[in-house]
C-alpha cells in the first residue's frame, strides 16, 4: 500500500515538475495555441478523476467497524507513556480495537514485525476510538504511539501476539 502510494506520488510529482522544466527551457516566444481549451479540459479531467477516486475510495467507509464476524474485541488504553492492552493473545481474523486514553491525545498504531504500519486511529480524550484490522498472519505485532504526547512519546511501545488458529 505505502510503496504504491509513494510510486504514484513520485510519478505525478515528476510529471508536474517536468511541465515546469520544459516550460522554463522552451524556446522564447512559443505561443501556446488553444491554451484555454487545454485548461478547460484539464479542469474537467481533474474533476472527473476526483469524482471517480472519491467515489471508489469512500464507497466502503474506511472507518467502518464490523458488528458481525468479529473474532475478538480488544481494549487498549494509552497514557503518558505506556500502552495497556487487555489481552496478550489476539486471535486471527477480524479484530476490533477500542482505544482510550487516560490523559492526552495519543495515536494508536499497529505495525507488523517489520515495522510497517497496518492501521491507526487517534485516541481522543473522552471518546472510545474504535478501529478494526483483519489479522491473516500469526506473529508478534507492535503498538506504537503516532501522535506526539510528550517527552517519552517515542518510547510508548507495546506488543501483542496473534495466535495461530
Amino acid at each position: 500500500m505505502q510503496l504504491t502510494v509513494l510510486a504514484i506520488s513520485l510519478i505525478v510529482m515528476a510529471f508536474i515538475a517536468a511541465q515546469f522544466i520544459t516550460a522554463v527551457r522552451s524556446a522564447p516566444g512559443t505561443v501556446a495555441t488553444g491554451a484555454e481549451r487545454l485548461r478547460s479540459r484539464l479542469i474537467i479531467g481533474l474533476a472527473i478523476v476526483g469524482l471517480v477516486v472519491s467515489a471508489v475510495s469512500l464507497a466502503r467507509w474506511p472507518h467502518a467497524v464490523a458488528a458481525k464476524g468479529v473474532a475478538a474485541v480488544v481494549n487498549v488504553s494509552g497514557g503518558q507513556w505506556y500502552w495497556e492492552i487487555d489481552t496478550a493473545q489476539v486471535p486471527l481474523g477480524l479484530v476490533v480495537f477500542n482505544a482510550q486514553t487516560a490523559d492526552v491525545t495519543h495515536g494508536f498504531g499497529i505495525t507488523d514485525a517489520d515495522g510497517t504500519i497496518l492501521v491507526q486511529t487517534q485516541v481522543i480524550p473522552g471518546y472510545v476510538n474504535r478501529t478494526q484490522y483483519t489479522f491473516e498472519q500469526p506473529g508478534t505485532y507492535r503498538v506504537v504511539c503516532l501522535e506526539y504526547c510528550g517527552v517519552a512519546h517515542h518510547d510508548m511501545i507495546n506488543e501483542f501476539e496473534v495466535a495461530a488458529r
Binding site: 508536474i16 511541465q19 516550460a23 522564447p28 516566444g29 501556446a32 491554451a35 485548461r39
Partner: peptide, 16 residues
C-alpha cells in the same frame, strides 16, 4: 494546478 500553475507554464512558454 489548473489556474496558477497552468497560467504560469503558459506564460513561461511564451515569454522571453
Amino acid at each position: 494546478i489548473a489556474v496558477t500553475a497552468f497560467s504560469l507554464i503558459v506564460y513561461l512558454r511564451a515569454a522571453d
